[in-house]
């Protein structure tokens, strides 16, 4: 079977995905998560893991430098890359939501701060609402607190960060889980190896 290159985001998604693969019986050595390396070959299962920034995972896969990848649906929605979305891994559950200060009232010139400008613009456009979308790269919760925006669009998992900063969830846009994606060419050229990984994942995903 051909060797596969798998792109994954560092951190929680990676740990949970590796946990799934272990559960499916793949022989992954226990110590390798602590590594600081960016490329981790696991010869036992014929896979090279590439550890990337989450938003870059679909890019690596689209260009084919990684055959498959694991990434949150939020990133897929925002990046709009031409990749195959093969499987819902049902890990890293969270949701994309609109949030604002607890006493939020509609304003005449609404502004929304977000790491997901495309998703946010589309959501409000489809609702017929006119909003100015401001792209931020982190600590989105700050924006309403210091008056940059009246609402934010961001990932919510437990809601604790929102609460600690005096924000409330106003609307849920969509639930989010991590997905297994594949490059268009690898999906055909390395179909056997990819199907094997898909089957392994599928065998341990709760339906």
């Amino acid at each position: 079977m051909s060797k596969l290159t798998v792109a994954m985001p560092k951190g929680r998604i990676f740990e949970e995905a590796v946990e799934l693969l272990r559960k499916a019986g793949l022989d992954i050595p226990p110590e390798f998560e602590d590594s600081r390396r960016l490329i981790i070959p696991v010869d036992e299962i014929g896979i090279d893991f590439i550890l990337a920034k989450p938003t870059d995972v679909p890019t690596y896969v689209e260009y084919g430098v990684a055959d498959i990848g694991v990434v949150g649906k939020d990133v897929l929605l925002e990046e709009e890359r031409d990749v195959y979305e093969l499987l819902d891994l049902k890990i890293s559950y969270c949701r994309l939501s609109v949030a604002g200060l607890a006493n939020w009232q509609p304003t005449d010139s609404p502004r929304v701060a977000t790491k997901y400008p495309k998703v946010a613009s589309k959501y409000f456009r489809e609702k017929g609402a006119q909003v100015e979308v401001i792209k931020l790269n982190g600590s989105i919760e700050l924006a309403p607190m210091i008056g940059l925006a009246d609402r934010i669009v961001d990932i919510v998992s437990t809601g604790r960060t929102l609460k600690e900063n005096g924000l409330v969830e106003l609307e849920e846009i969509t639930p989010i889980t991590s997905r297994l994606i594949a490059n268009r060419v690898s999906y055909r050229m390395k179909s056997e190896a990819i199907d094997y990984v898909v089957e392994k994942f599928a065998s341990v995903i709760p339906s």
Partner: peptide, 8 residues
């Protein structure tokens, strides 16, 4: 598709 090319 070619083996060493990520796009069709």
């Amino acid at each position: 598709y070619a083996a060493n090319q990520g796009f069709p």
